[in-house]
Design a protein around this nucleic acid. Structure first.
Lengths: 208, 208
DNA sequence: GTCTATACCGAGATAGAC
DNA sequence: GTCTATCTCGGTATAGAC
């Protein structure tokens, strides 16, 4: 992603990177709206505006395209996390903040949908080093927030940190967001508000 | 589903229904583990133990197979709901009960995974009368529980009933269940317990 | 690096015998 | 109603010219 900060690139190389960024954005959108299986390479090529064969000069396979998009999203997420770590927000508010950031991505159909369990792509991701590195980094950072928030009694200790981590990750593919949007009854901020509430406050009754 | 309660059937017809039940069970399992796109008709046939062409004598298409499995699951769910309505449980406990029932199905890979948004199958379901009838029935019943529980101040009124309904529906495809299971750290009851807690109590801190 | 044209294959669906 | 064998089509990937 950041080669251009290391060495001077020729004009052609810059164009190349820009095109690949464009491809990744397209793939990201298609993964978000249709998912991996339903997305076709023809579609990607048409949407980008180049021939399919040209696409294969940039990425060796459909899987590689998806992985590149997923890694891109992970990198963006990590940037968000690092930015939050620069702030003086409480651990709880960092957790809420990143969760809402992810939900906005999902609502705007920019959060890629991973295929269901037992898929080839998932298997492949687990063996993909740089992807796993990013994932581990992310889990570590968020895990720290969770433990800190628990220590400060800002979030519950009645479930384990791992369960909380997964619960937050799950917001990246929460169908509730889409359903509420389709209903047409709420605007984006109301949806974010409600789902944040069900996530942190639960649907059970609370005093005050 | 209940033709056999209406009229006397020949032996052959009974065998037929049994076979179709067997097919539906197989499809249900495959939908739960692999999802619609990844599931192949060859797989279904092999798993049932008949030839693919025979399968097509029972159901006209792959889509019809999936719809039959989905309707079957809906019928089972409605039975559960009706059984709960026979009890004297509070509305809150009925909601918890049906939610946990659904989560057990999901944990045991018997809850079919619908494909991602914008799929053909989803479109088709929306125009499928008997499926929509079941869905509306279910939503009405659960909707009543929600409103009753809100009136009794057992669940929150800070989000709308619709949001709560969707939040509960979402438990049928909650990836947290599978992730916690894969982690190998918890048994089924612990997982149900934790996810129920995050759902009804939230992950935010609660007094007492 | 981009294109057009094509190879190849997996998977849904069907033909036709028994 | 079940089978084997086959058709067909869509979709991934590649060949080869420019």
């Amino acid at each position: 992603m950041n080669q251009n900060s290391k060495i001077k690139l020729s004009f052609k190389q810059k164009m190349m990177l820009q095109r690949e960024a464009q491809i990744i954005q397209t793939v990201n959108g298609l993964l978000a709206t249709k998912g991996y299986d339903a997305m076709t390479v023809d579609e990607i090529a048409d949407s980008v505006g180049i021939a399919k064969a040209s696409l294969y000069r940039h990425f060796p396979s459909k899987e590689a395209l998806a992985v590149a998009a997923l890694i891109n999203t992970m990198e963006n997420s990590l940037e968000q996390i690092q930015a939050l770590n620069e702030t003086s927000l409480s651990a709880l508010n960092k957790l809420k903040n990143i969760t809402q950031w992810v939900m906005r991505l999902k609502l705007n159909q920019q959060m890629p949908n991973l295929p269901s369990e037992n898929s080839m792509l998932r298997e492949h991701l687990l063996t993909h080093d740089s992807y796993m590195d990013l994932l581990v980094n992310m889990s570590d950072s968020i895990g720290e927030w969770i433990e800190q928030a628990q220590a400060e009694r800002q979030i519950t200790t009645s479930v384990t940190p791992l369960c909380i981590l997964y619960t937050l990750y799950a917001k990246a593919c929460d169908p509730v967001l889409g359903f509420l949007k389709i209903s047409g009854l709420y605007d984006e901020e109301q949806i974010i508000e409600m789902v944040t509430s069900t996530c942190f406050n639960g649907i059970g009754h609370r005093e005050h």
